[in-house]
Structure formats: C-alpha cells, structure tokens
Design a protein around this nucleic acid. Structure first.
Lengths: 345, 345
DNA sequence: CCTCCGGATTGAAAGGTTTCACAAATCTGG
DNA sequence: CCAGATTTGTGAAACCTTTCAATCCGGAGG
C-alpha cells in the first residue's frame, strides 16, 4: 500500500518507471514507443498497460536532445491581428498537417524587439525551421540563423541575394494594376493612403503606383501621399479625415490604400462625412481579405494567393530540411485585381 | 590552420566547446550564463568572447530537461481567423511580455483532432502552462492534463466544476441585453442567426435571447432559428438568403447574430438584396470586433473585453505556476451592448 | 546432441545543460 | 604572518530519452 503525503505530487513517471512496473528494461520501453514491431505482442501489451497505469507522458525535451532536432515549425507573423497573416498561417497548417509536425505561431506585431526575442527562443529550441514575415527582410540576423543551421524561409517579402528561400507576391505589379485601373476609370489625382516607408511591401506598392502613372504619361506628383503611423482601420479613418479636409482643387478623386484595413477605415470615414463612394472618392484596397467583399461598399482590392503563399512557404521549408544539396528558391506569385463597387460608377 | 571539407557543417558548438576555447571548466561557462556575478570580469569576458567566436547557441532542450519546465506558454485558439481570438491572444502577450516568457499560438480551427494533437505535443514539451478555448470545455482530457502537472486555463468558457481556472464572459447576459434592446426597438419576431448547438458560447447567447423574450412575456417561438454550419462571413451570407426567402408574415424584422462575422455576412446579403438596415431588418452582432464598427452600416454589437480576457487568463496561469496552495478561480466578465446604426431607425 | 540462426531483449553510452559540494586562491583583521 | 572568511573556479552527477552492439533463447538443420 502506498501512503502519500496529502498534496505531495508524485514525481511524473519516466520510461524508467514504466520499465520497472512492466518488469522489462529501458530499451524495451523505448522499442515499444519507437519500433513496436520489434517487440513481442505480450511484452508490448504489458508495457502499454504500465504506461497507462503510470500516466506516462513522453518527455519531448529529452527526445529532442538526443535526436538533435524537433518536430516543430514556427511562423513569426508581422501582425497577428491582420487577417491576411492568419490566412497565410492557415495555408502553412495545410502543409504541416500532412507531416507529423506542429506549427507554432508567434506574433511580432511589427516590433523588432519582439521579433528578435522570438527568433532567439526559437533558435534555442532548435525548431526544425522558421517561417517569418520580418520587420526588415534584409536584417543580417536571418542569415546568421540560417548559417547556424536553422532553416529560414521569408514569407511575403523577397530578401536581397539568394541565400534564403522566400515566397512573396509581386507588390510592384499589384500597385501597378491597382492604379492602372483607377486611371482607366478617369481619375488623375490619386491618394496613396497608408504610406509607411519602413514597410517594404508598402514601398513596392507605391512604386508600382508611380509606374502606372508614368505609363499613362503622368508624373509622380499625381500621387498624393497620406502617411499613417501603422496600417490599421483606425489609421485609415484618420487619413480619411485629412483627405476630406483637403481643398477641392487638390483633393484626389481616388484612393489607393496600402492594405484593406486602411481602406475599410477610409471607407468608414467617407460614410460618416457623407462622401459617396465611388462618386466622390473611388477606393482600391490591397489583400482582398474576406472583410473587403463584405464592406459597406464592396471593396475593389488586389488579391494575393494568401493560403497558397503559406503552403508553399512551408513546403519549401520542409524541402530544405529533407533534400540533400538544397538549392534556395525565391518564389514570386502574381496578384490580381478584383473589381467591385468601390471603383465602379 | 583549420581545414574543413567544403560543405561539411562543423557540429554546432556546445558549452563544452566554449569552455575548452576559453580555457575554463564547464561549470564556469554555466555560471557566466546563469549567475554572471559569481564570475570575475576577466574570466567572463574571455568566456563571452569564446561564445561569440564559436557562435554558441544555448540548447533549450537540454536546459529544459535539467530544469524540468520550460519558459513557454501556449494558447490553443478555437479559430485563428476570427479577430476575436487574435485580440484575446494580444492580451495574453501583454502579460507574457512582462515575464521572461514566450507565448506560442496554436490554431485548432474547431477540429477536435487538431486540438488533441496540439495538446498532446504541448504536454510532451512540458510547456509551463496551456491556455485554451476548447472545442468542448468539459472534455475530460483537460482535467487529465492538469492532473498530470501542466496547468490549464480555459478561456472564453467556464467548464463545470472548480478544478480548473477559467476566464469567460457572461454569454447568457450578452444574449439577454442584445435581444432586450431589439424588443425595446419594437421588434417581436427575431431571427437567431448562426445557431450552432455544438458551440457552447452560442447556446448561451441563445438562452439569453430566450430569457429576454420571456421577460417581455413572449414565448420562445418568437425566436426564429437560422442554423449555419459554422460562424463565418460566408455562413452569414447564406443565412441571409434564407432569411430573405421567408414569406413576409413570418419573416423576422430583426436578427441577433451569433457573432460579428455572421452579422457582417448577413449585412452584405441585405445590401445585395436591397433590404434596408435597420428599416427592413435590424441587426445585432456579437464580439464588437474592429470590423463591426467599420461596416457598411455600423453594427450594433455586444462587446466583450477581449484583451482583458486574455491578459487575465495569462495572469491566472502564471499565478498557478508560482503560488503555493493555488486556489482555482473562475472569472466571469460582463459584456456590454454597443448601439450603432444597424438597430436605430 | 551440437551448431547456427533469427527474433526478442538488455545494458550502457551519449546528448548539452544545470546544480552542488568542494577545492583553490585571495582577502580581512588581528 | 596566521586563522578564518570570501570570492572564484572545478568536476561530477543528474535530467530522460534513443541507439546500438551485445546477449539470450528457442528452434531448425545436420
């Protein structure tokens, strides 16, 4: 009879305890776990009974220590509250569900310090690989991590050089088709809402916008920048108020927004201020998140293959861990314009 | 001079290598890492130089194995694509940022099998604790995990019994204030859109709705259930079409939606079908996600303190790991109604 | 009856860190 | 200049699993 102090937790059972309870050696318990076919059915049953009895839970740290690597991938998201990134993550899960892998999500929320903290911890955990949409895709730390042996795949950005795998969408092209569409609708002064030069995606979209203007023979002064501190719905609302405050002659007749969140905020301000969309202001968003189609005025937006982006990134990462002589690849998808009411008068 | 085979990775350096390079013992390297004040500045500098030189990365598995516990919390989300849950997660990050902890997010996406897989892996990893919005809050597995030593805090549900900590919002009350508001606006036939009996939160909200009707002397037949297979924007759109198809006399004049995503979908169908909101149909959502205020017709919604929910949950978990003689607590917050245009004629 | 074979099982080593009792070196004050 | 205290540094054990060479056993073939 076992007498136990009330409240004294019995130490969690390890394989050694299981072995003792089943009257076999440690090695046999390990075999039951890892190569059950090498163990006679009778023994196996006895060991499994002991495991159930003792509530044995495998210790992944010890496993990993021995094996040298884990069965975990991680995605460091730039912004967990933006549906775009959660959709990308869903695509990654499609790929990891296939293998015997877990995907852990980390949210850097645009903060370099948090990103760095997560990267450090993930590397220390010896995760099998890191997927990341970085604050700065050319930060040397990404290459350092890869060089030390943890594969890194950059998502939704293409870092310079070919030392890393990456999966991205052609943001310059996206900006171009968005503004070309507005030009075709007869607009000549176009606001770029959510200019935020530190975000590469935004820089590229703006560059595409300027190219489209140039192709139509219009100078970059036809693009009116409305800078915001971030790219949230609230930022869009604020920018909308500034836009509405511009005097008629210089006020743009159309807005190209850095992403859909900003566009939704802008749209809301228009509704509040009785500006008609698209008559007083045409609006194009970016990402085509689910809420874009569901907006007050359904939003024209540049659609990115987000789920595919995530799945491809995870597949590249897995390829990197299994292939011998892996060649880094930079995949670039092409976005497409989805035209809805917000630009059609 | 070190000659290295091209492509032959040098094995990652461990503390032993650092010790050798710095000409000190293993114990000293450990002291530099964990108790730097116990090491003379000169020695410390030498060791740190060696670590930099060898690109030493601490092995968290080994640490954890020795220490017996990790510095990781995990939140198993019910639905990563619902902004409600990412906001809850942001609240948890507020709390973990304070300590020296990481928060990993896992998305069960309403699938019991995925939830189980994540729980198993997290337990094997010996994470410091698990936060979870479970598919089934009364599943015995949660108690089993807690009994085996990994603290579990249930988020956005209150499981039966007092064997676990939990943080939730009073969904019955939420349903009650939503429908009471609609009754006050003169509606007497109310649709409940997104009835999905397997989701406890939805059951409770519906129960609250029925209580509000009863308080007004109306029977439960005044609530018209529109069931959906999930709670997404698309489900809301579909339900909207069914609702619009009901013959005039039995068609409800107001809809209480199980969450904001469904409400947004419903709203969109109304726009497509030229039903005016709130004149032809008043709509109340639930969660007050950011997009609710930004909708075509700004949405009346039941607001939950989501960030606070997350922060409190993480704090309870931390308390459980540090306090001796911890008492499990069940915290319940009270939601409030945010009235906007979608119900005000 | 002996040998050899294959399947089942064993025992010990290894993996990288932390901890802790202990030794060595240095300092304090008498 | 010494006893004792303090500061630094050491070495080995422990954490739990996996792996692998070695052993054991019962049976088949000679």
């Amino acid at each position: 009879m076992v007498v136990r102090e009330p409240g004294a937790e019995p130490r969690a059972a390890g394989m050694k305890d299981v072995a003792a309870a089943a009257g076999v050696s440690l090695g046999t318990v390990s075999n039951v776990l890892n190569r059950p076919d090498r163990v006679s059915p009778a023994t196996r049953a006895r060991v499994e009974a002991a495991m159930a009895e003792l509530r044995f839970v495998r210790n992944e740290s010890a496993r990993q220590l021995r094996a040298g690597r884990s069965r975990v991938l991680a995605y460091v998201m730039l912004d967990g509250s933006n549906p775009f990134f959660t959709d990308v993550a869903a695509g990654m899960e499609d790929a990891t569900d296939a293998g015997d892998l877990s995907l852990f999500l980390c949210n850097s929320a645009h903060q370099p310090s948090r990103e760095a903290a997560y990267l450090g911890r993930l590397e220390q955990q010896r995760v099998q690989g890191i997927l990341i949409t970085p604050v700065d895709p050319d930060a040397p730390v990404l290459h350092e991590i890869a060089r030390r042996g943890t594969p890194v795949v950059v998502v939704d950005r293409t870092p310079g050089g070919t030392a890393l795998c990456s999966v991205a969408v052609d943001d310059v092209h996206g900006g171009e088709i968005a503004v070309r569409h507005l030009l075709e609708q007869g607009h000549e002064r176009i606001a770029f809402v959510g200019n935020h030069p530190s975000v590469g995606q935004v820089r590229d979209r703006r560059l595409g916008a300027i190219r489209a203007l140039a192709a139509a023979g219009l100078g970059p002064d036809h693009l009116v920048d409305l800078t915001t501190s971030a790219l949230t719905v609230a930022d869009g609302r604020g920018a909308g108020e500034r836009l509405a405050g511009l005097p008629g002659p210089v006020r743009p007749t159309a807005a190209f927004c850095a992403n859909d969140l900003v566009a939704l905020g802008l749209l809301q301000t228009c509704a509040n201020l009785r500006m008609r969309v698209p008559d007083d202001l045409a609006i194009v968003g970016y990402d085509d998140i689910e809420f874009a189609a569901a907006a007050a005025v359904p939003l024209t937006s540049v659609r990115q293959p987000r789920r595919r982006l995530g799945r491809t990134a995870a597949e590249l990462l897995l390829a990197e861990t299994t292939e011998t002589g892996h060649e880094h690849r930079q995949v670039v998808f092409t976005p497409e314009l989805v035209v809805r009411t917000s630009t059609l008068r």
